[in-house]
Amino acid sequence: MKTRNLVVPVMIGCALAVASICVAQRNNRSGGFAPRGETVDRFNHGSVRHEATHVVHVPEVRRDEHVERRSNVIVSGRRPTVHHDVDLDVHGRSFWHGFVRGQRFHSLPRGFLSFHVGALPYFYYGGIFYQEADGGYEEVYPPVGAIIPTTPENPFEVIVGGQVFYYAGGAFYQQQPDGSFAVVAPPIGAIVPELPPGAVQVSLNGTIAYQFNGVYFEPVFVSGITQYEVVAP
């Protein structure tokens, strides 16, 4: 007896599926951190067998008491969920997507912040940092150590080693005990869904990578789609 699966050359060709998919975007706008039940991402819609298994469990983040109590700061981070095969730019473009290093302006956007990092004066607006240049202002790389009151709009929430980072405009931010956010060194191993604006393609140990402000982002397939991992040079 021949079993049907092995011997009969069943060939299913060209099942052209015009599939419309619906992906729920995480919409963590309720303020504060996402409750535990929401630390689940699903981005593989379209199969019954992955009804329960297509969730990605992210480790629960342990928070300190004093962070928990500070409820006036709204963190609207989103997990670096990438919508499979979806053309619609559901995230939209944020102000920081327009970062071009060295781009100059006569004046700063209304509502800018000014502060020093070390001894150097910086200006900030919407996820982009500026310094004075030739009587105007130019866009500069995010300086590690800068502290801003809240994250830029629509940052990606990235968890590395149990720690929460917010990624926007090529910068990684971490919340401070007082509720503000500091630009920190990009954590090795962070996986982000998009490259920093203006990252340049380079070759790193024979592998393709992208460089931004001395940090290397290597393309990797995560759950079947391309994302970028911060790697040591």
């Binding site: 050359p9 299913i12 052209l16 015009v18 599939a19 419309s20 975007q25 919409n27 979806v86 619609l88």
Partner: peptide, 21 residues
């Protein structure tokens, strides 16, 4: 899918599968 505004929109794609068991 849901836009940031809460509005629901559809996204489409084509899948072509060739399979030989």
């Amino acid at each position: 899918m849901q836009l940031a505004s809460g509005q629901q929109v559809q996204a489409g794609r084509n899948i072509a599968v060739q399979m030989r068991r």
